[in-house]
Amino acid sequence: MDLSDFERDNTGSCRLSSPVPEVCRAEDCCLGIDEAGRGPVLGPMVYGICFCPLSRLGDLEALKVADSKTLSEAERERLFGKLEQARDFVGWALDILSPNLISTSMQRRAKYNLNSLSHDTAMALVQLALDQGVRVTQVFVDTVGPADKYQQKLKERFPEVEVTVRPKADSLFPVVSAASICAKVARDHAVKRWKFLEDLKDLKMDYGSGYPNDPKTKEWLSQCLDPVFGFPQFVRFSWSTAQLILDGRAVPVRWEDSEEGAGGSPAAGRGSGTPSLLSYFARTQAATERQSHRFFHERGLETVADL
Amino acid sequence: DQWVLVAPESVTDLPGKTENGPVFTRLHNPCTGEAALYLFDTNAQQLFEVKAFHEDYHSWFIDQTVQHDGRLLLVTPMDPLFMVLYYLIKAEKEQGKFQPLDQIVIDADFPSCSMLLQCAKLKSFLHHVTDEKEIGNKKFYKYNKEKTLKWLNKKVDQTVRALKIGNVNVGPRVQSTTFISGGQGSDVKEEDYIRYAHGLISEYIPKELSEDLAKY
């Protein structure tokens, strides 16, 4: 799996895909979607799809791409190798979403939450397969948020496709298990080969599992914290684990859309309320304050009384 | 402590050795009556007003430091006659007689106002706003309202010219200063320029004088 593009620039997203087997263009196919790295506070989240002709599902099952959660990293690598060897009838594609992209999406003014990001990424991968000529007739995917809403969304987007949204889909449907393998292997590689843009000096890379409830991960977060800049971009700033540490130990930072009256949220935090439209037009002025000539206040210029 | 400031290079010119470098000082703002910050250059040859570009939610990175105060200070030359005018008017109200300048420009709240008298050309321009008498080698001054209004009128005319050259929006429409339109629009009249310029000049003179200037 060649992640060199993402290794070079791990600030955005990166798409990878296998060549499309000819048989997937000629026959009806089923497609599975799964994700890797949803829960951790560190590293990217990866969405993966895997597809094969309906007629070859038995062959896919024979590869024994079981529930990937029970497998070790080495076992996942081995299974991915098997999928690669089955390239005459199995195709895959991945979207790697960097922690920076996740953080900025969740924290920008028009909030783009993780579920929406997940849905859109999944749908974009299905569309990619269709655009590449894969004859997708069935899609299987695990639930992300309310199952019925996700199913409806997918059905509206792909009316010609039979969509099945089911909890634990990776243990029910081999094509989802296969997608899970691809996604997890990609995340494993991305994390292992992560290039920190920041100069972290002597910081040890012993961050544990990367999950928020791992004490080693929390300790590492505390150690790598910069009071002004927060964390390296390896960290998902939008995770409450990260925000709590910033709350306690970073300097207060206020943005234009910070919550009204708040003392100031830390580097990562922003208010969630929608600001009044009026707030964009006028700065509040004390009743006794004399307003200067429009030349000055239109340009944001004011008299200085003190340095 | 540090601030970010844009000023003409001449502010920090040091001709020869001198201990009288540029000085920030608080003076009486002739319009508001409150303290405001001004700058005298080396040897107080020139007066500058200090304004700040100030929007909410800004800070600075300066090299390897962070500065909370996100203002950008701007220093621009200012005619010291505006500052002296306040004291001339005050002296006229209180005494109504000819006095030496160093007895007119006195302020217990702002003792550095005496530095205004060092400004180059101040004395040669005082006649625009005063009547003068010379007794022996000493000059005596008295505020002249009519002369002052004539001088201020010239200031307004100069300001109108500058507004036109600078294509400043003086019309009634509210428009973003970063919006570049083809022109002022057909609804802008000469009166709008004069009204705008009067308003700008009024930022530098007492309210009563501004009202008189408006009538003039």
Binding site: V253, R254 | H58, W60, D63, V66, D69
Partner: peptide, 22 residues
């Protein structure tokens, strides 16, 4: 000039996290 208010005066590891770009 930053688009946020940082309530602190003091050292900041600017060059560790930012590189200038034109």
């Amino acid at each position: 000039l930053l688009p946020c208010e940082i309530r602190h005066n003091g050292p900041a590891a600017v060059s560790r996290f930012f590189s200038p770009a034109i």
